[in-house]
Design a protein around this nucleic acid. Structure first.
Length: 288
DNA sequence: TATGCGTGGCG
DNA sequence: TCGCCAAGCAT
């Protein structure tokens, strides 16, 4: 296998974007919050929300001291509001089990609510500088192309971690940079739709390129239509609750004009089941 | 392993 | 216009 680490690390050194969480001393809490927000939400939308969040809650304990409703409200329109709830729960767990300090061990991070294989290792590597493979969708796409010669990665698998681990340089600092560099390449060069191979530092050793960039098929599952979906209904309910400042909304007034009444009820029920809303005395409100 | 889960920008 | 896409996680 050709050496990918050397050119990627060199490329990253002169091409890395200047992002808030890459500033020296950004802190493990900031890294953790940024990773929660970056789960399925683009960088450009995260940055202003991240600043506001950390100004309001500079520590896990500060967030844990406020009710989850405030976390959901501050989350605003970032999408997937369960992440706000999970981030709040993680803050409580950090306060209660780790003396308010974001843990450094992958196993301890994995035990926190809302943290999986990616986020746990991202925090351990980018906040603490330890040596672990960090595998996100960008990394998987880069490896699928450069190593396997496929146009798109297969579905996520545990073996992804071992494959990335095999590429890591022995020195912690360089391993961390390679993790970041591989993600960065996938984000700005080796993109899903129109890769910029002319600007790629490893195009001369890319298996996909060598094979003539064949379309090997897209293993990604297609996203369900949003218009008219239950998710859209949930979004509308939650938007109303966020804007109902500190007040509960009468149940029969919750998106009362929604075209599908059954879907409206389904949305409310599922939000309650998820803990994103509470039904109290004929009213609906964010979780206190 | 497959599915459900928001929101907005872009080609 | 509309489908695709964006640093995943829990179940």
């Amino acid at each position: 296998m050709p050496d990918l680490a050397t050119p990627l690390i060199a490329w990253y050194g002169s091409n890395a974007r200047d992002l808030p969480w890459r500033r020296p001393g950004f802190g493990a809490w900031g890294t953790l919050v940024s990773e929660f927000m970056l789960q399925q939400t683009p960088v450009s939308r995260v940055i202003p929300h991240l600043d506001a969040w950390l100004s309001r809650w500079p520590t896990p304990a500060a967030l844990a001291a406020d009710p989850p409703a405030e976390a959901v409200r501050q989350w605003a329109n970032l999408g997937y509001p369960r992440r706000a709830l999970w981030l709040h729960r993680a803050a409580v767990e950090i306060r209660d089990r780790h003396d308010g300090v974001v843990p450094r061990e992958v196993d301890e991070l994995l035990a926190l609510t809302g943290i999986g294989d990616y986020t746990a290792r991202a925090v351990a590597v980018f906040a603490y500088g330890d040596r672990h493979p960090v595998v996100d969708t960008n990394t998987r796409r880069v490896l699928a192309r450069a190593v396997e010669g496929r146009s798109q990665p297969g579905p996520p698998a545990k073996t992804d971690l071992a494959r990335m681990a095999a590429l890591l340089p022995p020195v912690d600092e360089e391993a961390a940079i390679l993790n970041a560099a591989t993600m960065e390449l996938g984000a700005v060069i080796c993109t899903a739709r129109t890769p910029r191979c002319d600007a790629c530092p490893i195009s001369d050793r890319c298996a996909w390129r060598a094979a003539g960039c064949p379309d090997t098929g897209d293993a990604r599952r297609k996203q369900a239509r949003y218009e008219g979906s239950d998710r859209q209904a949930r979004g509308a309910v939650l938007r109303m609750l966020r804007h109902a400042d500190a007040h509960a909304v009468r149940l029969d007034e919750v998106i009362a004009d929604w075209p599908d009444a059954r879907q409206r009820d389904r949305a409310i029920d599922s939000l309650v089941a998820d803990g994103l809303a509470e039904a109290v005395e004929g009213t609906l409100r964010l979780p206190v």
